[in-house]
């Protein structure tokens, strides 16, 4: 049964713009490996929670956080927890 809150989940393609602003490139086809369960997804396939103070991308298998973004007024803050994902350029 789909719960109301879970209807708020998008996929990583929904945050393609925010990611490309940070990385200067399309990131949706980049592979991301969950640091917890090892599941591998394209970033565009990750679970995306955007109705929050920031953006949270999670593993499709175990929902562990893979990547977080906060649009801070003094520049976007990115926290990469998944493997294989390049570090954002400074």
């Amino acid at each position: 049964m789909t719960e109301p809150i879970d209807e708020l989940v998008l996929d990583g393609n929904a945050v393609a713009g925010a990611l490309s602003e940070i990385y200067g490139d399309d990131m949706t086809t980049v592979l991301a490996e969950c640091a917890s369960c090892g599941n591998v997804d394209h970033i565009g396939e990750l679970l995306a929670y955007v109705h929050a103070p920031g953006i949270v991308l999670r593993c499709t298998a175990c929902t562990t956080v893979v990547l977080r973004i906060v649009q801070h007024p003094r520049g976007a803050r990115v926290d990469v927890q998944g493997k294989r994902i390049p570090r954002p350029p400074k």
Partner: peptide
């Protein structure tokens, strides 16, 4: 009452 969430319920 807006619902905000950073993960599954």
């Amino acid at each position: 009452f807006p619902v905000l969430s950073a993960g599954p319920t």
